[in-house]
């Protein structure tokens, strides 16, 4: 006679003791405890691991880059040269403008407010840190406090310090889901609320008709308004009263090695939405 057995073996146990999965779970639970109880020690342990992962990612990127088409690289090089020339011209124009304004308003070096900045090395970034956060190697010992703003190369606003440990800090990027800040777009400085879309993407909604085009710069608060991204696509039905701007950050978040952290003052705090958990 056939007999049906319903074996319900405990997944945590082997015949001789705890299963390998059970051991893994115990170790991970211990790690969670370390992270929650002594987060600074936790980051001291994992910083070398993150750095090794970063080095490996850079090496593999270089290796695969070797196989890229030389024609594509030449095209990209030409495009970058053109952009560089355009930016140099724009820079010259701005220098001239600044000089004329200084002459007009009598601004001197002594009148300028210089906010001290902390230069921090990035330990983990997207995609290693998949939640649109950066982990940097400077903390409260170096003068970093929660609520300060982080800037990338070229003074590009990146995000806000949301956790400051003794030797490490976590920066939540403006592109993190749930993050929102009030900025402006285009040469006419049309106000808009920039929302984090995750994966390094920023979004914003505007009502039609708005004088915004692909390629317009999006500004976020810093000391003044600083370009944080560029409109790369405008989505939305032409009959709809609103449109969605897809904004690409000015810096590649996947290749950030250093950031500067400094107090952006009330200009930043005033523009972060109250619903955001990242409000300092």
């Amino acid at each position: 006679m056939k007999k049906t057995f319903l074996t319900r073996r405990n997944a945590f146990l082997l015949s001789g003791g705890v299963s390998w999965g059970g051991y893994a779970l115990i170790i991970v639970l211990l790690l969670i405890a370390v992270r929650l109880i002594v987060p600074n020690v936790y980051f001291h342990i994992f910083a070398p691991v993150f750095r090794s992962a970063d080095a490996l990612a850079s090496t593999s990127h270089s290796f695969f880059g070797f196989f890229n088409s030389s024609a594509e690289l030449t095209k990209a090089n030409e495009r970058l040269l053109q952009e560089n020339a355009a930016l140099a011209n724009e820079n010259e124009a701005l220098i001239q403008k600044e000089a004329s304004l200084e002459a007009l308003l009598g601004t001197s070096e002594s009148n300028r407010i210089i906010t001290p900045a902390v230069l921090a090395g990035v330990i983990a970034r997207p995609p290693e840190s998949p939640y649109d956060t950066l982990i940097v190697d400077k903390g409260t010992h170096s003068g970093v406090v929660v609520g300060q703003e982080a800037f990338g190369p070229g003074n590009v606003p990146l995000g806000v310090v949301t956790t400051a440990l003794a030797d490490f800090s976590r920066i939540t990027l403006f592109s993190a889901p749930g993050m929102s800040a009030i900025g402006s777009v285009g040469s006419k400085n049309i106000p808009l609320t920039v929302m984090g879309g995750g994966g390094g993407v920023l979004n914003a909604s505007l009502t039609r008709p708005s004088d915004v085009a692909v390629g317009d710069l999006v500004f976020l608060p810093g000391p003044g308004a600083l370009p944080a991204g560029k409109v790369v696509r405008i989505d939305g039905d032409p009959t709809s009263p609103s449109m969605t701007l897809r904004i690409q950050p000015r810096v590649n978040l996947f290749t950030l090695y250093f950031v500067t952290i400094r107090d952006a003052g009330e200009s930043l705090k005033g523009t972060l939405m109250t619903a955001t958990t990242t409000k300092p």
Partner: peptide, 27 residues
Amino acid sequence: IEPVAVIALGLFADTLYYSVHAGGLPL
């Protein structure tokens, strides 16, 4: 093969990277 290890793996990834300030769920 080891279902419990997968649960541990998910927890491990979020232990490394999850930030409560990012506002998202521990995916």
